[in-house]
Design a protein around this nucleic acid. Structure first.
Lengths: 341, 341
DNA sequence: TGTGTTCTCGTAAACGTTTACGGAAAAACG
DNA sequence: CGTTTTTCCGTAAACGTTTACGAGAACACA
């Protein structure tokens, strides 16, 4: 059924060593022989068995992407990851790498699955998303000496790994700037309760910008909840109970924003009329919601491509001739003004 | 760094054969030895190298999911697949299988990528989505004798493979029934232009139900376009040009519905007031659109789980003691009544 | 005690590659 | 022509497993 390199060698009456060298583009093989080998490979429909290569080379030619669910989140950051995956996979495929997607039950934080991937050498490197402020996965991987990169920053691991993140701090500040310019002074912030790093960055930018405008940061206007619709629905009323309620709310997540808008609607408050609403990470949902939500949009597909590149550049086996490099980048979020503010 | 079975054997002063047998739960190993081996494996942090197992066993312990993009579709059926993937991966993980996600550039129909997966024996089986009426991928896989299952039916391959599909025919009919019951007689249908099988099924149900109600099927009320927002936006006006325009439109896809609603809005037609709108496959977008779109909802996560089960049941190596079975199922879509009809 | 059976384990081959090594032939050079 | 270099290829080991086979020991039974 499956033709092996032996079949090919027998068919050509040469040794398997030569066949392998010809196929792998090594220099020490006659040009004519190489041509014959390549041709025979095509007609015999031969392609090398991956398991064989992996075993011999000690490389699996695949990358594991750990899709990290949260407690209380049933959606896995739903619309966010698909375009990212598209870019990621496209770039990996260029280098002949496959993408293994690993998910887990919400709440286990995937340490177990991660260990399994690493210990069974199932992938040559892993990609982490939803980085936390202190991230034990990063500690584990650095300590194990396993190649990895992250989508998002963290305080763990001494920045000795490639990472690509969005500039949530600037987005938070930009959101405040825009609202202030439109006359708002009482601006609330709704963010995830977990120690997700982007939540901290967002809040830092929010605070900094308020201070820059001479506006006092009011703890009553800051709420945190589960990073999903229910979370937004639950905590948004908190900021409305302030004696001096906000005239604008910045949500750190699309799902929380949708839940928040539902809560607002039940209080008779209409986003875009009675309340300015801004969302930090744009998704299709923001666009189709009514009113369409002003949001900050990431370039997800290019991000996927770029992170794949960065990961590859950090691995000696895949890096170019100039050797492996650790690249860390922070990408901007682009304002998409719509009807909600 | 990585401990192999040899290290374990040396440490225990027994042969690697015994270690392997102990680890794999074979019968011919002393209970005491087995205990010692398992304990040592734990302390030495040993887990078997996947490439080694794969090579020896001729099985990769992974399943490839071919995410099929369409020409003109940049979204890869975006929100649809994430919950499906969650269920799929969860079930596969239970059996120790990894999930490889393969995407491709839109338009190439992925034959090339599929061949690569099959020929390099990168996965033990593949999973196809977006099945077409006549699907060359199915023909290729059956002819190659490669295990696979499909999300969706097809006319190809003589039904000799497991498949899980949604009952688009019944959904199409139910949608018509509901609209007729609400007094509509001029009901339009907007469907994808490609030979996607679910488009045929939907249209068949639509036609059948109309006839059952004694309503003539008017070709002017049926339009097809690219299965994305732009496609819906482009072709929806066609059905409005009829001398006797529709009072209701059934969209076969959420993205097309959104595009269609945009076109309607530009004509001053408000879904839910001047026009009843129904969508066959519900997504979060339908829920948050304004007006919220009445839609038929699939149970995506259970579907993922079930299809994984069905695929495993069809593979001798993974099937239970009663041997491999080909299972084909059709699941219902559940009506979610909202504000658009 | 002799024979047959059962338990348990070691030996070694095999899976399909890649690659270090060495050697024969050809080419280059004096 | 003799020597050195280059070109090309075959040999065989290695990667880490699993497993067929056989053998020794222990046991059961007559």
């Amino acid at each position: 059924m499956a033709s092996s390199i032996h079949d090919l060698a027998r068919h050509l009456n040469i040794s398997i060593g030569t066949v392998s060298r010809a196929l792998n583009g090594r220099a020490d093989v006659n040009a004519d022989t190489r041509k014959r080998v390549l041709e025979a490979a095509r007609t015999l429909n031969y392609s090398p068995n991956q398991s064989g290569r992996s075993l011999r080379q000690g490389a699996t030619h695949s990358i594991a992407f750990m899709l990290q669910p949260h407690p209380g989140d049933q959606q896995y950051g739903e619309p966010f990851f698909i375009p990212f995956l598209i870019g990621l996979q496209a770039r990996l495929a260029e280098s002949g790498l496959d993408l293994i997607v690993v998910m887990g039950a919400p709440g286990d934080y995937q340490q177990e699955r991660l260990r399994r991937v690493v210990e069974t050498r199932r992938a040559d490197a892993v990609l982490l998303a939803w980085t936390r402020r202190e991230d034990e996965r990063i500690d584990y991987l650095t300590q194990a000496g396993f190649p990895f990169a992250t989508l998002g920053r963290s305080r763990s691991g001494a920045e000795s790994y490639p990472s690509l993140d969005l500039d949530f701090e600037k987005a938070g500040a930009d959101a405040v700037d825009r609202l202030v310019a439109r006359g708002h002074r009482r601006i609330a912030a709704v963010r995830p309760s977990l120690d997700l790093n982007f939540g901290y960055l967002f809040l830092a930018g929010y605070r900094k910008a308020l201070r820059r405008h001479g506006i006092e940061v009011d703890p009553e206007l800051i709420a945190s909840g589960f990073i999903n619709e229910a979370g937004g629905y639950e905590v948004t009323p908190q900021v409305m109970r302030s004696k001096d309620p906000p005239t604008a709310i910045i949500f750190n997540n699309d799902a929380m924003a949708l839940g928040g808008c539902k809560a607002l609607a039940e209080m008779g408050i209409r986003p875009g009329h009675d309340m300015a609403v801004t969302v930090i990470v744009d998704t299709p949902l923001c666009r189709y919601f009514s009113p369409a939500l002003t949001a900050f949009r990431p370039a997800l597909e290019p991000m996927g491509q770029r992170l794949a590149e960065m990961l590859l550049a950090s691995i000696p086996a895949f890096a170019g001739p100039e050797g492996p490099r650790i690249i860390r980048e922070v990408w901007p979020l682009e304002l998409v003004a719509r009807d909600s503010d």
